[in-house]
Design a protein around this nucleic acid. Sequence first.
DNA 1: GGCCCCTTCGG
DNA 2: CGAAGGGGC
Length: 448
Amino acid sequence: MLYGIGMVSFLNTITMKQISLVWLRRDLRLDDQAALYHALKNETNVLPLFIFDTTILNLLPNKFDRRVDFIHQVLSDMKKELDAINSSLLVEYGDPIDVFSELIDRFTIKAIYTNRDYEPTAIARDESVKKLVESKGIAFKTFKDQCIFEQSEIVKDDGSPYSIFTPYSRKWKSKLNDFYLKSYPCKKYYHHFYQGDDFKFPDLESLGFSKTDIVYNKFVLSREIVRHYDKTRDFPALKGTSRASMHLRFGTISIRKLARYALDYNETYLNELIWRDFYMMILYHYPKIVRHSFKADYDKIPWLNNEKDFKAWCEGKTGYPIVDAGMRELNTTGFMHNRVRMIVASFLTKHLLIDWRWGEAYFAEKLDDYDLSANNGGWQWAASSGCDAVPYFRIFNPEEQTKKFDPNRAYIRKWIPELDSLDYPKPIVEHKFARERALNVYKKALAG
DNA sequence: GGCCCCTTCGG
DNA sequence: CGAAGGGGC
């Protein structure tokens, strides 16, 4: 009897097709995708896998999360595309280590292909998965896909990483050539996709989440916006930015495609893409910045961290219209124009002397395009604690920023309809007083 | 064996 | 694009 059961599972194993997995994470597309390309080129029976990672999902306080809904919609589209070529998509739910333990028993897996992620927790996760699968004789192969240049590809002549953007970007541009921007021609090897069984696709509710107002559409970059980017990007009332951030975050657009556009049409736009590479590189080399100031001295600042002020900032009730408009845009849509992100971050860290970590955590919760490297970089830039940050004595004046970048107050009025009524709050702190206070607190902390 | 040219190939 | 490698001389 025991012999019989063993025999059945033995037969199942040897008759089962050997497959290779492409573990999708923030690269949710089937074209110009590095890991997918290499898997399809080198292997047969290639099956894409996505894991709804409970170690991430369990930390999301709001079950109406646009990001989870977005991923779910993207995967649903992808599955249709794969179904159409008689292939499939494997979607799992759980801690990746447990999921892979289970998959190793369920399938005969030859190799796992995936694209590198540079966040410390992702690096640790991938290390432990690699250890697990390699102990079972399964290859674990990783590729560069998220950025143009990663890790130590752009370093100073002595091999050390840059911490100043301008020389970094110069080196970046000098190293760039068409080959780095070339699209990975995945379609050429589509016949190597796994053929056969259809795998169950979970609905959003079974993952513990609910439908939101987000609708996923394939991202189309506007050539006109990129062409005029340098002239329009700072005006939040205009449609002057590419709105690519969420697609870059989840990989529904290829960075190479955007960089080709940028190179052809607008240098300023290209620089913004280089900032993205720069901050990913910085996070890779200095993972301590997740919790600590890049410039250690700045962790000596005695933040006031007034809860009432923080709440007013979060809710868009500081009495500073440009700040409040930004926060309301964020709370309502999950997005905030980048010029306004800088203004609200400067206001929180300098006017209110609230720890940049509080602001960053709030953005992490609310931004649909939230990305650790870019957000940490942006917050530490505004707080002056970061690499190549704004100097501490440069404090954005909200009124001056408004005059320059929202002169007709069109953006402000869009988000604050009650602006001219008594319902709109008085400023929670006076600008001149707050500015002097910030200067004194920063100066004293950095001197001591 | 050494050099040059041309093709291939990598991310 | 630029490096590497094969073939011809």
